[in-house]
Simulated scan of single mutants.
Amino acid sequence: MRELLKELCALNGVSGDEKAVRDFIAAQAAPYADDMRTDALGNLIVFKKGKKATGNRLLLAAHMDEVGLIVTRATEDGFLRFDFVGGVDRRVALGKPVVLGPDKIPGVIGMKAIHMLSREDMKKVPKTESLYIDIGASSKEEAEAMAEPGTYGAFVCEGEPLGSDFFKTKAIDDRVGCAVMLKLLQEELPLDVTFAFTAQEEVGTRGAFAAAFSVTPEVALVLETTTAADSPAVEEHRKVCAPGKGPVISYMDGGTIYDRGLFEDLRRLAEDNNIPWQTKEYLAGGNDARTIQRTKAGVRVAAVSAAVRYLHAPASVGSFSDFENTLKLTRLFLADQATK
């Protein structure tokens, strides 16, 4: 699980540009899939037969994309203007290394030097239009030859352990869910399962709509990450959950009221099998479940998430034990669904 997750997080797959991630997952899934297809939005949909034939009744979903940036124009002196793709925290973007396009052109995000900022400016979160990317070009023509408008950019962050259980890298959101689904694909399943590796979640859960509409499941489990918000700077009443305390089983968030029966099933399975679990103590965020739930006549949805610090930043931190327990709980959920 650790090596697989490290490989997945190292890939660049900003929303709308998930090909590298999709190709890797497809290659890993192909030996175990009974059917596999890529739809018009870039979702990879994999079907695997289980011991019990249930068709498309059950869907597991995790998104492939990550937050990043996209080049909008070049200045006359060779700097690149850009916009963010997804909800990137602008406070932590300054000075961060990025790579642009399939050739991975190196660059760094810059803005006016701190020595030239007024005291008022220093109190403000920088606006996107005040930022630029320096790729070492000296003219507009040189910059556009290296990275023309429309070129995607991804943050650079080598994956590495922190302490004995924590892991730091980019794109944990949501390569964790992808890793769990790949591990399950390699196993004998208790029932038929459709796996949707979705695209464009970070820009409005767009891929999930197309995936769920074509699959038409009765039940869906979304495997995700969620904002930990357990840092010392967060007021006690606004802390959501914490890495290392087990998978997060949600009953509600900013986009979805989850199926109460599925929530209770997951809670029962965790407690009966000594899997630590937690829920959100402050309701925030959202994921593909909000779109899947509203598809066609409606879908019963549940979510199991890993608590992750610094979501949508160039580097995030999560817990290996939470990742492994998410896999265990999902495996138990499949077995339980086979009895329904």
Rank of each mutant, 00 (worst) to 15 (best):
K6E: 14
L11E: 11
N12A: 14
V14K: 00
D17E: 05
A20N: 04
V21P: 00
P31K: 15
Y32Q: 11
I45K: 01
I45Y: 05
V46E: 08
G50M: 03
D65Q: 09
T75W: 01
E76P: 10
E76R: 15
V85H: 00
D89W: 11
V98K: 00
H115Q: 12
L117I: 09
P126K: 08
P126A: 10
S130N: 14
I133V: 02
G136Y: 07
A137F: 01
E142I: 05
E142G: 11
Y152M: 10
E160D: 05
S164M: 13
T169C: 15
K170A: 07
I172F: 08
D173Y: 02
R175I: 09
L182M: 15
L185R: 10
L189M: 09
T194F: 04
A210C: 01
A210I: 01
A220C: 08
T226H: 03
S231T: 15
S231Q: 12
V240D: 03
G246K: 09
P247T: 07
S250V: 11
D253V: 02
F263W: 05
W277V: 03
G286C: 08
K296I: 04
A297W: 11
G298R: 05
V299K: 04
A302H: 06
A306V: 13
V308F: 02
H312P: 07
F320K: 12
D322T: 03
N325Q: 08
L329W: 04
R331T: 10
F333D: 02
D336Y: 13
D336A: 13
T339V: 06
